[in-house]
Design a protein around this nucleic acid. Structure first.
Lengths: 106, 106
DNA sequence: TCGTGATATTGCAATATTACGATAATAGTG
DNA sequence: CACTATTATCGTAATATTGCAATATCACGA
């Protein structure tokens, strides 16, 4: 085998793990942090983070697929900006998980 | 290459990603949830979650390495229990990241 | 529409993760 | 000490992730 057997898991647990995966790589954390300071384009992030354009673009896709990005075209480049509402949803989902886990504990 | 190039990343970003990784698999989320309801042994989790004993043990190691477990021997089995203080630390680290990210955003 | 700069995608290689069977180690019981 | 039940580890296979070079696509300006 090797792949995660999603069918056996609770949907809620899958949801939490999907959210967590977005933050489970330092480059993606760095991208989120950077975009929170200032919206920016792919090349900005390439310079700041030090990975190739292709790799940064891939990470942006992961973050974007999670619904955390707005993109707009500005001149020849595409500007990325955080979707704060979505980020807040993520924070609340995780907090809710932490709270329940904490409160029920032995 | 293929492996994460840790050397280029901020320690703080690496820390966040390490925390997130613990929650980045539904089986580990399920284990944490289950242990929050009731402390239990490996075989309990095998039954509840539906993965093999070896796999559950592996996930327990990941969770344990992150400092989230206490273990004690009770009869022939080993009882696992959540380290709530550590879990709270994780919650706070993530919340701090979310807060900073949110407050700085464009 | 053609060219240019920026971003996305493709293809590939390296590494990591997930899962399980088999087996070893461990702790309590008789 | 042997026996048993439980858990950890090893070996291995399958899948996923990460990263980059090369290339394709896209959006704008001339």
């Amino acid at each position: 085998m090797g792949a995660t057997r999603l069918k056996i898991h609770d949907q809620n647990h899958i949801d939490i793990s999907r959210i967590a995966k977005v933050f489970a790589h330092p480059a993606r954390v760095a991208i989120l942090k950077e975009l929170s300071v200032q919206e920016g384009c792919c090349n900005d992030l390439v310079e700041v983070i030090g990975l190739s354009q292709a790799t940064i673009s891939q990470h942006l896709t992961v973050i974007g697929d999670a619904g955390l990005l707005y993109g707009s075209h500005k001149g020849k480049q595409r500007n990325y900006c955080l979707n704060i509402e979505r980020l807040e949803e993520f924070r609340q989902s995780l907090n809710s998980f932490f709270s329940k886990t904490k409160s029920n504990c032995c």
